[in-house]
Structures are given as C-alpha cells and as structure tokens.
Amino acid sequence: MTSTANDYQPSEVELARRAFRLERKRKSTWIAIASTLGFAVIVGFGLVSTPGWSRVTESFFNVEIGIEAFPRIIEGLWLNIRVLFFTSISVVIVGMLFALLRTLRNPVFFPLRLFAHGYVDFFRGLPLIITLYLVGFGIPGLRLEWLGRIPVEVLGTVALTLTYSAYVSEVFRAGIESIHPSQRLAARSLGLSYGKSMRLVVLPQAIRRVAPPLMNDFVALQKDVGLISVLGAIDAVRGAQIEVAKYANFTPYILSGILFVLLAIPTVRFTDRISRKLAQREQTGSAL
C-alpha cells in the first residue's frame, strides 16, 4: 500500500464534515436529555399530585416494614434461585430431547414422534398453575410409600420442567429446521452419520440462532419460579405474603417484586448482547 493510515492527513472538506456530524450528534443528545427530563417531571408531578398519593406511599413503599421483611424474603429468594438452577438444566435436557424426537424422519420412530408431539401440545396448552397443582398435589396423593415424602420445591421443579421443556423444545425445533438442508447434505456427504451431522454441524448453528428466544424463555422462567409458592414452598413470594399478613402492609410484595426484577436485569442485558453479536456476525457491509 502506498500510504498507510499513519501518514494520511484528512482534508479540510473532511474535517468540516466531521465537525458538522459532531455538532448534529451533540444537538440530538441535548434533545434526548431535555425530552427525557421533561417526561420524568410530568409523570412524577402527575403521580405526587394525586389525592391518594400519601396513603399509597404509606401502604406500598414503607421503608421500615421493607427492612423488617427483608431477611425472610431474601431467604425465600435463595430457594427460588436454587429451583431456577435445577429447572433450567432439566428444561434444556428434556426440551432438546423432545426437539430431537420430533425431527426424526424414519417411520420406525413414528410412535416416539407422536408422543413428543402430544407432550408438547399438552404442556404448552395446560396453564402452568394447573400443572403445578396436578404435580404438587397429585403425585403425593398417589401415596407411593417407596418415594417417601417429596419436598414441595422438588415437585415445583418437576412441574416447571414439564411446562417449560414443551416451550423450549419448540424453540430448539424451530432452530434445527431453520438450518438450510444443504448443511446437513454437506455433512452427510462427508460420511458423518445422522447423529454426528446433527451434533457437529446442525445443532451448533441452530443453538446459536435460537439463543435470543431461548434467553427470553429463561427470563420468563425466572419469575415463574415464584409460582411454586402456590404449593406452599416458602419462597420469596410466599415469604412476602407472610410479611404482608403480619403488618397489613403491601411493601413486602413490592420488595420481592423489585428483587425479581434485579434478578432478571443481568439476564436481559446478556440476551441483548448475544443478539447484537449475532446480528453483527450475520451482517456483511454496513447497517443502514
């Protein structure tokens, strides 16, 4: 190359252009700041000026009660996080299993495919709360002596897995089917078996492609773990409920809600980052 980036000096036209762009950017930044502030002031003022504002702050945002309730709620949240951990793992495994069953082509596997189909249809349709009741009260109701007494959080994990694996298996299946047949063809032409071409060629691309919707389901699961409280597990929601009953004040609910949001924020940010990275990878040339 005759000149490198080092000995190049931008012309006056270019410098003027850069100055113009900088000025325009600065202007739009100021407009954004001003409009954000204006909006915040209007909303804030509108809320505070409502007639019931002082009573609402007293019964929903009472700091002392929040501090009192905090230990029980945080202890409950720890249960939610453990349930979330085990549920996520089992959802991925079961979901992937059903997705793979549904993509099998060989007629021999028809019964398996039918079973997978029925499973996905059933648990995607059944409201989560009914699944929770069915598993949480139905399984202990069978009085299986050899199982002993199953803790409610385990039953909750099972119920959540049933519902969420049905959703996630559809996400995986969509990903697998979105990979162009030519990829599988190329893999098979090299002598890779069905299983190996799936594992080494199709799935890595499919999973990358469905990562954003998968993370979306994970965020949904993060708050749905709070539903195990209906089985009597003392999680963050149930803990908050107990505190609400004790003080006749709604602040503990708000507090547990805030904790769930804080739990979700890192995941949401992480999802955004993955999506952005994927977009960059698949996009050639500049973004218009």
Partner: peptide, 26 residues
C-alpha cells in the same frame, strides 16, 4: 461502487452528482 451509492460513508474526498455535492453531511 458502494461509496458512490452512499451505502458506505467515505472517509475523505467529495462526490458530486450533476454538480450537487452528495457527500455533504446534511
């Protein structure tokens, strides 16, 4: 070609289409 279509932003120089400076930032 992409620069002439303004799909790529040029880092220096100027482009005129029928006398109009189409590389002007505005």
């Amino acid at each position: 070609l992409r620069c002439l279509n303004l799909i790529e932003e040029i880092n220096d120089g100027q482009i005129w289409l029928e006398g109009e400076d189409i590389s002007a930032p505005g």
